[in-house]
Structure formats: C-alpha cells, structure tokens
C-alpha cells in the first residue's frame, strides 16, 4: 500500500540529485520547474500549519482546558492579522505594519531579552569548578565573556587575541568535526529515505 509514495520519493529524490550535477540548460529548466512546485508545496505547508494551529486551540476551547483563554487570544490574533494583511495590505503605515511594530516586535524582543536574566542566573549556578572538565569550561567561558566585549581589552590588552585563538583553533577543530559528521549523517539519512529503508515519514512504522 506504500508502493506509490515510495516510488515517488525514489524518483523525485534521484532525479533532483542528478539535476543538481547536470549543467545542461534543458535539465536546469526541469529543475527550475520542480523547484517552483516545491515553492507551491511550501505555501500549502503554511496553510496546513495555520489550520493545525486553529484546530489545536479550538479543541482546547471546546474542552474548556486550563489556559483556554490564551487559545482565544491565539485564534483572534491569527484571524485578525491575516485579515489585516489581506484587506489593507502590508505596506508602511498599514494596520498590519502598525500592529507588527506595536505588538509583535516588542513582544518577540521582550521574550528574547528575558533570556539575559535566566542565563545570568543559570551561569551563576551551573559554572562550578567541580572537576577538570568543568573547570576548563568555566575558564573558557569567563575568557570569552570578558574577551568578546569592549571592556575586555580595557582590563587586559591580550584578551581579544586570546579569544581569537580560542575561536580559531579549538573551536574551529571541533566545529569542523561536527560539520563533517552532520554532513555524512544527512547523506546517509537521505539515502535511506530515497531507497525506502527509512519510512517513518509515511506516518506509520512498518
């Protein structure tokens, strides 16, 4: 019963990989057309996401679950912003633009700014020199925290060079190893999906 989706995945996967490496103009035309289809699929994914969001919150409201008031807020905000954009457009000084600048932007910035407080509290409690590894992490964190801001150079002129070394040598080596590992993992997962070995995307384990 899964033969259709499996064959489709195999064909699309192999064709797209092949097209990536074929510099021929006709091949690239086909590639561009397939990418256009993918863009349309992305647009539907946005609609699907909105419908799913509405469904989840509507269920909460119907069951009068705890915090269902916030589900009302989410639904009203979703419908209102969509209507604002569709009816009055998205240009400067449009209702959506004003709403974005007065509500969305400050809320998102505030949520992110709260991290500064929680990170400070977490750093105080977590950065403890309990063993050699933790001490190494602690010393590196302190050097980076001080060396990467203006006051670091003021305290000791060698801080910027030390932070640059940390980023250029140990950081670079670790990041490169991780990147190669992730790359190989991605190739292996892609091959497993294209060849039909990994089928969890079909929605059921077989």
């Amino acid at each position: 019963m899964y033969l259709g989706p499996l064959v489709l995945t195999f064909v699309v996967g192999t064709v797209l990989i092949a097209l990536y490496f074929i510099p021929n103009h006709a091949a690239q035309e086909v590639n561009a057309q397939l990418l256009l289809w993918a863009t349309i699929v992305y647009a539907f994914a946005l609609i699907l996401g909105s419908v799913s969001l509405m469904g989840t919150h509507w269920r909460k409201i119907r069951l009068r679950a705890e915090g269902s008031f916030f589900s009302w807020v989410a639904i009203v905000a979703l419908v209102a912003t969509t209507l604002m954009g569709v009816v009055w457009g998205v240009a400067e000084k449009s209702p959506l633009d004003r709403f974005y600048n007065a509500v969305n932007s400050p809320l998102a910035s505030t949520m992110f700014a709260l991290l500064a407080f929680f990170i400070a509290s977490a750093a105080f409690r977590a950065f403890r020199a309990r063993n050699v590894e933790a001490t190494l992490l602690l010393v590196t964190a302190v050097v980076m925290m001080i060396g990467r801001v203006s006051i670091g150079e003021f305290i000791w002129p060698g801080f910027p060079a030390l932070t640059e070394w940390l980023l250029d040598v140990p950081n670079l080596a670790a990041k490169r190893a991780i990147a190669i590992g992730v790359g190989l993992g991605a190739i292996s997962t892609a091959l497993k999906i294209i060849l039909g070995i990994e089928r969890s995307y079909l929605g059921r384990q077989r």
């Binding site: 750093a123 964190a141 925290m145 001080i146 801001v149 203006s150 006051i151």
Partner: peptide, 11 residues
C-alpha cells in the same frame, strides 16, 4: 560589557 562583567563576577 557591564552585564558580561556582572555575570563573570557572579560566576
């Protein structure tokens, strides 16, 4: 800069 110094001193 000042917040980084505060966090460092706390650590």
């Amino acid at each position: 800069s000042l917040v980084h110094v505060i966090v460092t001193l706390l650590v």
